[in-house]
Simulated scan of single mutants.
Amino acid sequence: MTLLFWIVIGLIAGAVAHRVLNSRGGFIGSLVVGLLGSLVGGKLAEILRLNVTGGFLDQLVVATLGAILFLFLWRKLFR
């Protein structure tokens, strides 16, 4: 995947995570949460041996779930 592909997925996943958890943050915050969420979601999918084919929608779902989990845990740890 190209860097641009991951940035687009990270932005979308971060924006969805911010909306789901009613969080504050701007463009950069959404990007960071989305990209970190992509890593978290990807690693969890690997650990759980989920078959993610690598398509845009699959990657978006995994990244979004990872971003929501990451943001939820971040809030619990640092608030």
Rank of each mutant, 00 (worst) to 15 (best):
H18K: 14
L71H: 13
K43N: 13
G14Y: 11
G66C: 04
F5I: 11
I47A: 12
I7D: 04
L21Y: 13
L69G: 15
F5P: 00
F56D: 01
V33K: 07
K43C: 05
V62D: 03
I12P: 04
L60R: 10
S38Y: 03
R19W: 12
T53L: 01
L60I: 08
K76R: 15
L69K: 03
L3C: 00
L50M: 14
L11R: 07
V32C: 06
I47N: 01
G66L: 09
F78Q: 06
L31C: 06
I7P: 03
R24I: 01
F56H: 00
I68S: 04
G26I: 03
V20F: 08
L48F: 14
W74L: 11
G25A: 10
F27A: 04
L71V: 01
K76A: 12
V20L: 12
L3W: 10
V20G: 04
R19T: 14
L71G: 00
L73A: 12
G42C: 00
V62W: 06
I28W: 08
H18Q: 09
Q59R: 14
L50E: 13
Q59N: 15
L50Y: 15
G41P: 10
F78N: 15
L65E: 09
G25R: 10
L69P: 01
V52E: 01
L21G: 09
V32T: 08
L48I: 05
V62M: 08
A67M: 04
G66M: 03
Q59W: 06
G34C: 11
S23Y: 05
G66S: 06
G25N: 10
V52D: 04
A17T: 03
G54A: 05
V61A: 14
I28F: 14
D58L: 00
E46V: 01
G66A: 00
I9S: 03
W74N: 10
G66W: 11
K43E: 09
A13T: 02
L71D: 12
L21R: 15
